Amino acid sequence: MKIRVARESDYPELRQIYLDSRRNSFEWANKEEMTLEDFDKHTEGEYMIVAEEDARIMGFTSLYLPDNFIHNLFVHPDCSGKGVGSQLLHSAIEKMNKPVTLKCVSKNQKAMQFYENNGWKKVVEKGSPDERYWVMVYE
Rank of each mutant, 00 (worst) to 15 (best):
G81P: 06
N24R: 01
D130T: 15
D130G: 09
L102G: 05
F74K: 04
E139D: 13
N24I: 10
N118H: 15
E53V: 01
P66C: 04
L14V: 10
P66A: 02
N97V: 13
E32I: 13
E116S: 07
E46N: 08
E13L: 11
F114A: 08
V75L: 02
V135Q: 10
M136L: 14
E46I: 04
E44N: 06
L88P: 07
L63F: 03
L102T: 15
P12G: 04
E131G: 00
T43E: 06
L88S: 02
N68D: 12
K103Q: 11
L102D: 03
H90T: 14
K2L: 09
V100H: 00
N117R: 15
D67R: 09
D20V: 11
T61C: 13
F60S: 01
Y133H: 11
G59V: 03
M136S: 11
V135N: 00
M112Y: 11
Q87N: 11
E46R: 13
R56Y: 12
E46Y: 11
V100T: 07
F60D: 00
Q109Y: 12
Y133C: 08
Y18E: 05
K41R: 15
K41W: 11
L19P: 06
M34V: 09
I93N: 06
V50L: 03
F114G: 02
Y64Q: 01
Q109H: 04
N30W: 10
L89G: 03
